[in-house]
């Protein structure tokens, strides 16, 4: 009686086809793209706490948060652009610097509310220009936002002449930048609040739903009768507002502003988003996970600083991280499709 009778095998095949589901095996890559960030972040923090001198000190943790907050706020906003399958918003570099300079310079000359209002209008303009070019004219998001970065930084340098602006040594901006609740600087609390708010927007609102749907399949979304141009414009406006708040927080932290202060924000934010597990193919991702990605990238950077590895090494690490995360993302997608 070796082997099963053929009828038993037939029955099982019948059951499978009745289910109508294509069988899928457990796949490591999919798992990594899906859940990896939780494990990796936890492991990294544990390793750092155990083996890196000075990591677990209160002062160092506050420092990590202070540096993580502006990039994190930028990243959670930009997450919407990535989920909409428009790769990334490079213009956050110009937007962060502009918001920072406007906050310090205009509040010095006039008032903080005026500075914030102007920065808000500028953010809206960025969002609209990027969004209309990409959403309405269907231009490539990378090239559009690379160009608006150039335009924005050009305008900023022309207006400021490259000078550094210092905030007053006493005042709301300065005190915002230095206040802490336990180990948490205010900026980190702002980041968490914004993350929660944007997470609700993404998962609970009509708009967030359409961003995801558009990123998953723009043609199917269009054919459902959706005004897809506005979905894209909305995503870029959220990204711009995130960049603006990131600029505010960055300026408050150092109480200074200069056009060159946000170099590398684009790729650090992207690293956080992708490492967090949001797919560059769009349609999949979460704001909460971007927050985890920010923690991961920030802790990694901090470990390198504490280990005496310079800026060059940090850059290399961020670059390598993006390549690795994007490759895992692609492989996981390929595995899921076939």
């Amino acid at each position: 009686m070796a082997g099963k009778p053929p009828s038993a095998v037939d029955t099982r095949a019948q059951v499978d086809s009745d289910l109508g589901i294509e069988k899928r095996e457990f796949r490591l890559l999919e798992w990594m793209a899906d859940r990896g960030i939780f494990v990796f972040t936890t492991a990294l923090v544990l390793v750092a706490a155990l083996f890196i001198d000075g990591f677990a000190s209160l002062a160092n943790i506050t420092d990590v948060f202070n540096r993580a907050a502006p990039i994190g706020i930028v990243a959670v906003g930009m997450t919407f652009v990535v989920i909409s399958a428009n790769y990334l918003d490079l213009s956050v570099v110009a937007q962060v610097a502009t918001a920072a300079v406007v906050l310090i310079a205009v509040s010095n000359a006039s008032s903080i509310p005026a500075a914030m209002a102007l920065a808000f209008l500028i953010a809206l303009a960025y969002g609209l220009v990027n969004g209309v070019a990409v959403g309405v004219f269907k231009a490539n998001a990378v090239i559009v936002t690379l160009s608006t970065t150039f335009i924005g930084l050009g305008i900023l340098r022309w207006l400021t002449g490259g000078s550094i602006y210092f905030g007053p040594p006493e005042g709301p901006i300065r005190s915002f930048g230095t206040t802490k609740i336990g180990p948490f600087p205010l900026s980190m609390i702002v980041l968490v609040l914004i993350t929660i708010a944007l997470s609700l927007v993404l998962t609970r609102t009509n708009f967030g739903f359409l961003v995801k749907s558009y990123g998953s399949n723009r043609e199917a979304t269009r054919l459902a009768g959706v005004n897809t141009a506005w979905v894209v414009v909305g995503a870029f406006i959220l990204s711009a507002l995130g960049a603006m708040l990131g600029g505010f927080v960055l300026a408050a932290f150092s109480n200074t502003a200069v056009s060159a202060m946000s170099t590398g924000f684009d790729f650090r934010a992207l690293a956080a988003i992708i490492v967090g597990g949001t797919s560059v193919f769009g349609g999949k991702g979460s704001v909460m996970r971007t927050l985890l990605g920010v923690v991961f990238v920030s802790v990694l950077t901090n470990i390198m600083v504490l280990s005496g590895l310079g800026f060059g090494y940090q850059q290399m690490a961020i670059g390598a991280l993006i390549v690795a995360a994007v490759s895992v993302d692609s492989l996981a997608r390929k595995a899921a499709v076939t």
Binding site: N206, F209, L210, K212, S213, S216, N217, E219, A220, T221, L223, A224, G225, V226, G283, K284
Partner: peptide, 20 residues
């Protein structure tokens, strides 16, 4: 597959898309 469905989204979400 290319025009009708958002394949990475759930059945419920696909149905919600045209009835949002």
């Amino acid at each position: 597959r290319t025009d009708g469905l958002a394949l990475t989204m759930s059945v419920a979400d696909n149905i919600a898309l045209s009835n949002r």
